[in-house]
Design a protein around this nucleic acid. Structure first.
Lengths: 230, 230
DNA sequence: TCATGTCAAGAGACTGAGTGCCAAGTGGCG
DNA sequence: CGCCACTTGGCACTCAGTCTCTTGACATGA
């Protein structure tokens, strides 16, 4: 898994350097040390290669939404943050892909398609979580559409001018949007957590007064790893 | 214009009957009484042929938004209705295309792309109409995303079960959505100025017993965002 | 040790989309 | 009529993606 994803990153880099249309599948296969036929078996297509890692992200998001105990608004916001953080995670890969996308409308279009996958995931999850009710369907549809659009707008902003503050700006805007839509449709009642009777852990992390969210999370992570013996 | 659009309808019909992948460009060119080369010159590609009429719709929408005297909410609603009505207008063509789309994921993906074009048009128009202001950008992004998602949902519903009442149902829902978003952000904008100076705060994260490290971090992040953002 | 089944990979032919080039029409227009 | 710009057809070419057949590595089992 990790080896193949490195191979993918390398191939994307090659496509970025030599140009999307100037690089043939033969070139890529030769570069990867496999035959042309094997290339198609492994990666599906030249296009799929560039977005192979999105599959993983989609699984992560679905797993998160499936298992979360958060209330609807928090889970939605955190799901969106999860996706956003994924793009910031490997800046080299994301920027290389972005340069690549500028070369070909075909690739840009493919990129846009991934939005619909995220939108669909949120929509279906919202439908389930909102349950039956008059406003559930339009809220599921509109909120997922709006939230993914917001995500894309902030991602575009970050691609144009990478800065670490974008994530928290995005999270704040997403929070506002979710609140506006849910309360506007009078679904505040659904905002409560659906968490069951599971007993809570107590976790104490000590951090400096000026710590930001990520620093605190890091402290929590290390405290957990310590106490759990990982 | 009208002659060529009839030719397009006929070719779409042929694609629908014989199958998308079973019909080659040679077949289509022969059917249209032109050479293969001319086919590509005129229609661009096999895929473009299926969505050629969308170009016209996009121009209609842009012209309407550019010239309308309506207030923002009414113009938005009427613009959406304009697009929706266009699909209902020629039921034969829309249903034939829909049958065609079921045959090929490639075509379905292409269809999804047109959403982004509409979304972009509404977004740019909303930016211009909302003018400068703190909430203008997120509203332009979110509302266009949500509105187009709503449009697509109602269109899917109509395609599954055509009924004339869908248009008015859609218009009503769109009106509600636009009102919720616009009024929701106006309210937020007024409340923001009264936000006080941040003091120290306590953070409590409650997670399920089976939560792993990452889930706990998500919960901490969520709790922080909750307490800091208010 | 050898026979057998399985599976991943390679080799190569084949289809079909899309591009580029050139030659042959097909009108206007002086 | 002859010149010109523009359109169309014919044709070769590249390359993505599919399909089939073969080969070799590996495991299992008598």
């Amino acid at each position: 898994m990790s080896r193949s994803s490195e191979a993918i990153n390398q191939l994307i880099h090659i496509l970025d350097e030599r140009g999307w249309s100037a690089t043939t599948v033969d070139d890529l296969a030769k570069e990867a040390g496999i035959s042309r036929a094997t290339f198609f078996r492994v990666y599906g297509s030249k296009e799929d290669l560039v977005f192979a890692d999105h599959e993983e992200m989609i699984e992560r998001l679905e797993a998160f939404l499936e298992r979360t105990d958060h209330d609807i608004a928090s889970a939605m916001r955190e799901g969106l943050a999860l996706v956003f953080r994924y793009h910031l995670e490997d800046e080299g890969r994301t920027l290389a892909r972005h340069r690549l996308l500028k070369q070909s409308t075909q690739l840009r279009n493919r990129e846009l398609l991934t939005s619909h996958t995220y939108e669909r995931i949120f929509r279906h999850w919202l439908r389930r979580r909102l349950g039956p009710g008059l406003a559930a369907e339009p809220v599921a549809v509109s909120l997922s559409g709006a939230a993914v659009a917001l995500h894309n707008a902030f991602l575009r902003k970050w691609l144009a001018e990478p800065s670490p503050g974008v994530l928290s700006e995005f999270t704040a805007e997403a929070k506002k949007l979710i609140h506006v839509v849910l309360s506007g449709y009078e679904l505040e009642g659904k905002l409560r957590s659906s968490a069951g009777v599971k007993g809570p852990h107590a976790v104490v992390a000590l951090v400096g007064e000026s710590a930001d969210t990520e620093e605190i999370c890091e402290a929590v992570r290390s405290a957990l790893n310590h106490s759990r013996g990982e």
